[in-house]
Nucleic acid binder design. Structure first.
Lengths: 208, 208
DNA sequence: TCATGTGAAGACATTCACAGCA
DNA sequence: TGCTGTGAATGTCTTCACATGA
């Protein structure tokens, strides 16, 4: 299978989420132009994206919703369930925990870490919080490959290095710093300050 | 001035954040290749980005850090301070509030909204929380153009419409839904579930 | 007729590579 | 020498437009 770009993956994830929300017994099929209206992408874009995962629709009926969800799921999630580790149980960490809880059967935050004694050894949203000292031990034991960094900026680099050493292959980083880690590990940055600055820029220049 | 792409804006914001963190009396200047090492972009990319805001460096000394920060600031922030409205004081809302607090002088969350009586009329991080019923009134009175949506998925569309009616020009949306609002309003989506799914995908496929 | 699948074109973004300069 | 600024080349992504088929 050809390599699929980050942008395409994001859109595929959006299609899946959208389709999951409109599952009903009434509508069995959907056309690319309907997905286009719902998402804001063009219909050609959507057909190409769906083509890229090897799924085919019918020119008469469009795409079978259930089958498309299934194909998207196999492509996005793979076969096996993926456990996720979350470091930092402040507001960001708790937010991620809340959002993901029960929404994606193949993805579960199975371990969280903090250094606050008030949080360690407690359970949040069904997820055990360990002391951050045990990070490598737990990640290796549970064979976790996905990590989320939700700690303050000055602790993020050290957490990232420890995750890398423990065998993590993908990191979602909410701290406002660039992580320096070995290549081969995927990093997605979601700096919240940057997001506000960006929106403020376009809010300002759009109204000029 | 030519239109500048979203991607370029994001990088400019990254440069500014990075330079703010390394301000010291020791180093007055910086070369594009140094910024390249620090950010992971290429030096050509960085020179082009800086060129695009009309700032010039010296082939001998590189870029003057203080002046570059100033130029980036004028470009990103504009002249006047921009007030921001935040709707939803759950974990995501509180996280944004914490991150932004005091970090960017030109950006301040001046009003927040919730419908929880335990939160309304209280002050969080120096920011007054109003009842969400007063959204239009406050946004118009304070002439706010930037809004952040941090409410559950099923309330996001209605909040977005009310923001649009109240004159908001840019929306940062953390709810996992596509917002349908008039064109001319900039929307940035930061779906947290999507972010985890994306990282999980690349963690999985990178290790194959 | 109307939608999919897709080659080709077009738009956009990044990198190359070098002139010019101190 | 070693940098910036930038035209040109390259690479990537998106859209156009139509052959195909029910």
């Amino acid at each position: 299978m050809k390599t699929i770009s980050e942008k395409t993956i994001e859109r595929l994830i959006i299609y899946r989420g959208l389709l999951l929300n409109l599952v009903s017994d009434k509508v069995k099929n959907i056309f690319s132009h309907q997905l286009a209206t719902m998402t804001g992408f063009t219909s050609a874009q959507i057909r190409r994206d769906i083509m890229s995962i090897g799924y085919s629709g019918s020119p008469v009926r469009g795409y079978d919703i259930q089958n498309l969800i299934k194909s998207l799921g196999e492509f996005i999630d793979g076969e096996e369930k993926q456990p996720v580790a979350l470091v930092g149980l402040g507001h960001v960490g708790r937010a991620v925990l809340d959002y993901l809880k029960g929404r994606r059967p193949k993805l579960e935050i199975t371990a969280s870490f903090d250094d606050d004694p008030a949080k360690v050894d407690r359970v949040f949203q069904g997820c055990m919080c360990y002391h951050v000292n045990d990070l490598e031990k737990i990640i290796e034991k549970e064979n976790i490959k996905v990590g989320i960094i939700a700690v303050p900026a000055d602790e993020a680099q050290s957490v990232a290095e420890r995750m890398a050493n423990a065998g993590i292959k993908g990191i979602l980083n909410y701290a406002p710093v660039k992580l320096n880690i070995p290549s081969g590990i995927y990093v997605e940055n979601r700096d919240m300050t940057l997001a506000v600055e960006k929106v403020a820029y376009f809010a300002r220049t759009a109204s000029e």
